[in-house]
């Protein structure tokens, strides 16, 4: 009985320390030291939130760069319910889905015969991946250039400016933030 009472007592102490004091202290310091990051790295335009630079948005307009496919439901890039396809590598449903995505990409740009970069036809782990690889952005350049009546060189330059290199020169992969790239693209018009 004494052991149980002590166990309960210790749990209460721990709940106060780790369940209450700790998260509140972290919140307080985070809100003071990193207010933008702590609140979701939001992008605002004219006082309205138009997204987060960390969270992907869906695009299927041929005039815009497409993001990676998303497996969230009921709509793609649902940031209130992250999710993945969880399809195994030999699952016929995966093969069919990839085929359909490649077909849609080529239908939007019939002249493009280059093989499609893999990240553009596979769903991400979170369903909210904000990035595509530079290769996936460059693959879409001819279509975007035609749709906007811009020289391909100018669009490639735009992609290059939005390409983030490896962090500290080593970590992770080079990548392009699709929402930021498309925001710039639409503001050109």
């Amino acid at each position: 009985m004494r052991t149980l009472a002590r166990a309960l007592g210790l749990l209460i102490v721990m709940t106060v320390l780790t369940g209450l004091v700790y998260p509140l202290v972290v919140t307080a310091i985070a809100q003071i030291a990193f207010p933008r990051e702590a609140n979701g790295s939001l992008i605002e335009r004219d006082g309205h939130v138009v997204g987060s630079s960390l969270i992907g948005q869906p695009f299927d307009d041929p005039k815009l760069f497409w993001s990676r496919p998303s497996a969230t439901t009921p709509q793609p890039d649902n940031a209130a319910s992250s999710g993945a396809s969880n399809q195994g590598p030999t699952n016929p449903a995966l093969i069919e889905a990839v085929k359909a995505r490649a077909r849609a990409l080529k239908a939007a740009d019939p002249g493009n015969t280059a093989p499609v970069p893999v990240d553009l036809v596979t769903t991400s782990g979170s369903g909210l991946d904000p990035h595509i690889s530079p290769a996936a952005a460059l693959w879409q350049v001819p279509r975007i250039a035609r749709a906007h009546g811009l020289p391909e060189k100018a669009v490639r330059e735009l992609v290059r400016r939005h390409t983030e290199g490896r962090q500290l020169g080593v970590l992770g992969e080079p990548r392009v933030n699709v929402l930021e790239l498309n925001s710039t693209l639409t503001s050109l018009r």
């Binding site: 990676r68 993945a84 396809s85 969880n86 399809q87 590598p89 995966l94 970069p117 893999v118 990240d119 596979t122 769903t123 991400s124 782990g125 979170s126 991946d129 990035h131 595509i132 690889s133 530079p134 290769a135 996936a136 460059l138 992770g172 992969e173 080079p174 990548r175």
Partner: peptide, 16 residues
């Protein structure tokens, strides 16, 4: 240098 390549189903581009 421009693409992580490999089996990207269920993976994030930033981690490759």
């Amino acid at each position: 240098a421009l693409s992580p390549g490999g089996n990207m189903e269920g993976k994030e581009v930033r981690f490759g």
